[in-house]
């Protein structure tokens, strides 16, 4: 097991270098000199328009100084080495907007996004697995066809549309007032509230965002669960189990379900990048102060250090979660030992 983890970590290195190289190239090869952009407060050339000659020369001097400070006058490969070094020391530079260290901003926002995504994953599996079991144990019944149809519709519904519809119709406004229109806590929130009240307040605020972030994935996953169950139901060990007189409940939940869960766990690796991307949209719609909203605000302000840091961190989070979902496989399926299984 240990050796497998080490192998996987080693295999992650080229992927990791690829991702960082990509983000590095985006900063450096696309138009816009980071130092000049910084001088303009992120707004590029627009920032220096209308300056006097004297003002312009001050700006030029500042740009020069930044270029030296961040090594921007060195050749590209040296710059990349600097960038990697900074990454390992979590030194992402300072925000163009307010000169705050990028890492502080991210450390503040990361837990929110991770909480949102973690709850969504739990919801996805809690909804998808029972739905899949129901569909597979009643194949081609009216109930199965209805869930298949609904899952297909849900899968095609754009989550930003549902999010906006929820804001317009359910969150105050001119229609119903069932949910808060955004942010993570009520206006009268106080840290002195008893624990249950703080939790309840948080849960009430996360209700819509979690539902909207997760419905796409649970719709897809429930179909996946259905076909996985159906596949295993046709196998001979099921016949044997039934033949030796086991109750149908035991056959389904003890024999078939265990085996059907294997592909469901691996698919987590595919769900997580989608969730992380989706949180940009959900956090923006519901003004949830997470990584996604930070990225969105950074894009509007052309705040490159933040954009690149968020991009790198979300890619790393994805890599780690892929690894975790592979490791979880050994928990679900003891046959999988991974020794000698190399891609």
């Amino acid at each position: 097991m240990m050796s497998y983890i080490v192998q996987r970590l080693l295999l992650m290195i080229p992927t990791f270098i690829g991702i960082t190289l990509l983000s590095f190239l985006i900063i450096n090869l696309l138009p816009g000199d980071p130092a000049a952009l910084r001088a303009g407060g992120g707004l590029g050339a627009a920032g220096s328009e209308g300056l006097s000659t004297e003002g312009q020369s001050t700006v030029d001097a500042a740009i020069k100084a930044w270029q030296t400070q961040y090594g921007l006058d060195k050749p590209l490969y040296v710059q990349y080495a600097y960038w990697l070094r900074n990454l390992f020391t979590l030194e992402f530079g300072e925000s163009f907007k307010d000169n705050q260290p990028v890492w502080h901003k991210i450390a503040e926002r990361l837990p929110v996004t991770m909480q949102l995504n973690a709850i969504s994953i739990v919801v996805i599996y809690l909804v998808a697995i029972p739905l899949g079991i129901y569909s597979a144990t009643h194949p081609y019944s009216a109930g199965d066809q209805l869930t298949t149809f609904l899952a297909f519709m849900l899968f095609a519904l754009p989550s930003f549309w549902i999010g906006i519809l929820a804001i317009v119709f359910l969150c105050g406004g001119d229609f119903w007032d069932w949910f808060p229109p955004g942010s993570l806590q009520s206006i009268d929130y106080s840290p002195n509230w008893p624990l249950w009240q703080r939790w309840l307040d948080r849960a009430w605020h996360l209700c819509l965002p979690v539902m909207i972030l997760s419905y796409n994935a649970f719709a897809g996953l429930s179909r996946f669960m259905r076909s996985s169950m159906l596949e295993h139901l046709q196998q001979e060990f099921v016949q044997t189990a039934r033949a030796k007189g086991l109750a149908e409940r035991v056959v389904i939940y003890k024999h078939v379900l265990r085996n059907s869960l294997i592909p469901i766990v691996t698919i987590m690796a595919a769900i997580i990048p989608g969730l992380i991307s989706g949180s940009v949209i959900i956090e923006t719609i519901f003004s949830i102060p997470g990584l996604g909203l930070l990225a969105y605000e950074a894009v509007l302000a052309r705040d490159y250090p933040i954009i690149m840091a968020v991009f790198t961190i979300s890619a790393l989070l994805t890599l780690v979660s892929i690894l975790i979902s592979d490791l979880l496989l050994t928990v679900v399926d003891p046959r999988i030992t991974f020794s000698g299984r190399m891609a």
């Binding site: 991702i19 990509l22 696309l30 138009p31 816009g32 595919a270 990048p273 991307s277 990225a295 052309r302």
Partner: peptide, 19 residues
């Protein structure tokens, strides 16, 4: 594998923001 493990929307946003 690399492209699969990148949250694509983030990548698109990062590039679109610079152009």
């Amino acid at each position: 594998e690399m492209m699969l493990s990148i949250p694509t929307l983030f990548l698109i946003i990062a590039i679109a923001a610079t152009l």
